[in-house]
């Protein structure tokens, strides 16, 4: 089994502030990996480095087999990314968004056509294909956004708090999509503030003040911290200190 992500002492400094402090971990291909931490713990910085958007200060890392220091363009082609702040164009229709991103990812005309059919069918959005994205309910936007993030069959998809604010049924339907993608062999790297969602991951890491404080399966972490739920594990590890000294969130 190949590794989707390998990091060794990956570090990012902003001036004298260390946002990500020598993190070391591996993610297997096809794994659902939960990347947890308090606001300001350094998750977003780490994620931006792994996506090839931010140059690390030191350490080593490969994503989909490419070096994130020197091969950022290859990294970007092999990954999908979705954040809570949508990357969909609100003033384009559903179909236009799919075509636009298909073009960006370099898919052929034929591929875009067949992908569009497949995706609209799967999300049951055929009726809404010609509607502006701005008119869709939040839950549908998130599902569409995820589907577009995996349009080009990336080997890894990064999801930054993908389910914030949606209703409990839609949130679970979204996780159905994640499970399904993982079942096809896509690696899922996901951040969330919902601790029940942490349980859906194969393994999770918990970041505190720029460092990875724990990394294991949810079951083993609960055992190790003698906690009834992942929420308890999280509270034990990430309990904010009075001297909270982070500025990012």
């Amino acid at each position: 089994m190949s590794k989707a992500i390998i990091t060794r002492n990956l570090t990012k400094r902003f001036g004298d502030f260390i946002a990500t402090n020598a993190i070391t971990f591996d993610v297997e291909q096809g794994e659902i990996f939960g990347f947890l931490g308090a606001n300001g713990a350094g998750k977003t910085t780490a994620m931006r480095m792994l996506c090839g958007l931010l140059k690390p200060s030191s350490g080593e890392a490969t994503v989909a087999g490419f070096n994130i220091f020197t091969q950022t363009e290859q990294v970007k082609r092999r990954i999908g990314y979705m954040s809570q702040k949508f990357s969909l164009y609100e003033d384009l229709t559903v179909k236009e968004n799919i075509r636009f991103y298909g073009g960006i990812y370099g898919l052929s005309h034929q591929q875009i056509k067949s992908k569009t059919e497949e995706l609209l069918g799967k999300l049951q959005l055929q009726q809404e294909a010609g509607q502006l994205v701005s008119s869709l309910p939040l839950g549908w936007k998130q599902k569409l956004s995820f589907s577009i993030a995996v349009l080009h069959n990336p080997s890894i998809v990064f999801l930054d708090e993908p389910t914030g604010g949606v209703d409990p049924i839609t949130r679970r339907q979204f996780w159905d999509l994640i499970y399904e993608a993982a079942d096809r062999g896509v690696t899922i790297f996901v951040t969330t503030h919902y601790m029940d969602e942490a349980e859906y991951c194969n393994r999770i890491s918990i970041m505190v003040d720029g460092k990875i404080k724990a990394l294991d399966t949810p079951a083993k972490l609960k055992e190790q911290y003698q906690a009834a739920s992942m929420n308890d594990v999280f509270l034990q590890l990430a309990r904010a200190k009075p001297g909270e000294n982070n500025s990012s969130s």
Binding site: A38, N39, H193, M195, F234, L235, A238, R239, A240
Partner: peptide
Amino acid sequence: TTGVDPVSRKE
């Protein structure tokens, strides 16, 4: 508490 981590939510 939207978008706030579980520790800050609890506080």
